[in-house]
């Protein structure tokens, strides 16, 4: 009996975060809808999702990295570098098929993610230091390969831009790509052995090693996936804004980390759900999208984001303490 009670409570708490987040999003949406009925229109929702797509794709990779107890600060510069490389190729060799360009972008991103993973697992660097270094290197290299010049809208081929602006059945490509990434991620995380081993590695690295999991390989894999998604979103970013600059996406890594934390991914590793980060990214998107709709200056955006994240992590700690306390109360009669 007592065990059952304990289980249900723990399960309840496990669901609590996503549920709380969902309730918060719904409440927020209703309030915004009352103040401005144009919020929940098809067009605006399409817009909102389109704007959230890149953030939510990156959140998948960041979640995996955070699950292994790491962090990746280099993603925004990796995006800029991979995107810039692709853009330069489009500018200088417009005859290359777009799909090949995309693959080159993906490959570049993956390569640098792989290097991050290698430095962190085999080189035993702290993730924050290794990826900080990588961030500098890639941001500088972006400038070098572009020689400080922009690639502008007219220099892109139409098919390149169409990757982000085109649509299928009225749904923007970015949304479709994000949906595909989420489906694959969900399958990978929940239904493949490798996916679960990444979680095991983060949940308890020591015993993962003892039970024969190649933890180094799991870490390298996570950072490589992060790199792959950075390469993907880098190319999409350039296509979407039809402009490649050496400071593209500067500082975007913090948004991604924040979306993950909002979505309930623990910085301590081992836990994080696809559904959670989707909601986290969505909340971020809504905060950005709705401020103008309800006549709040967009300059409030940052402060609101910061405050929401801070409150979310603190609320989480308080809830967890409550659970611990309840459990302790039961221990000695």
């Amino acid at each position: 009996m007592e065990n059952k009670l304990k289980n249900s409570f723990a399960d309840y708490f496990d669901q609590f975060r996503e549920l709380g987040l969902l309730v918060f999003i719904v409440t927020l949406s209703i309030i915004v809808q009352i103040r401005n009925p144009s919020f929940l229109t098809g067009e605006n929702i399409n817009d909102l999702l389109k704007n959230t797509a890149i953030l939510s794709i990156l959140a998948v990779g960041m979640m995996l990295v955070l699950v292994t107890r790491g962090i990746d600060l280099s993603i925004a510069s990796n995006m800029a570098f991979s995107g810039m490389l692709a853009s330069l190729l489009v500018r200088d060799f417009p005859q290359i098929p777009t799909i090949l360009i995309l693959l080159i972008g993906l490959g570049t991103g993956t390569f640098f993610g792989f290097i991050n993973g290698l430095l962190i697992s085999k080189g035993r660097l702290l993730p924050i230091i290794a990826t900080l270094g990588m961030m500098y290197v890639l941001r500088g290299s972006t400038f070098l390969i572009s020689k400080g010049k922009w690639v502008s809208a007219y220099q892109f081929t139409d098919s390149f831009k169409a990757m982000a602006t085109g649509s299928v059945f009225g749904i923007n490509n970015l949304i479709l790509i994000a949906a595909a990434v989420y489906l694959i991620a969900y399958y990978f995380i929940n239904h493949t052995g490798t996916g679960r081993r990444i979680y095991a590695t983060g949940s308890n690295p020591e015993s993962a090693k003892i039970s024969g999991i190649n933890t180094d390989r799991m870490i390298i894999l996570s950072y490589s996936i992060m790199g792959l998604l950075s390469g993907l979103t880098g190319v999409l970013w350039m296509a979407r804004f039809a402009s490649a600059q050496s400071d593209s996406a500067m500082g975007y890594e913090m948004n991604v980390i924040a979306a993950c934390v909002l979505g309930g991914v623990s910085m301590g590793g081992g836990s994080g759900k696809v559904g959670g980060i989707f909601l986290g990214a969505l909340l971020f998107g809504i905060l950005n999208n709705t401020l103008p709709l309800i006549n709040i200056s967009p300059f409030w955006q940052n402060a609101l984001q910061g405050a929401v994240i801070l409150l979310a992590v603190i609320a989480n700690v308080l809830a967890k303490r409550q659970v611990t306390k309840k459990n302790l109360n039961r221990r000695i009669k």
């Binding site: 934390v261 402060a303 994240i309 801070l310």
Partner: peptide
């Protein structure tokens, strides 16, 4: 994580 949040928050207040 705390200082990432306050990083966004403090600069956000400056923007406000």
């Amino acid at each position: 994580i705390v200082t990432i949040s306050t990083m966004i928050l403090y600069r956000g207040i400056a923007y406000i």
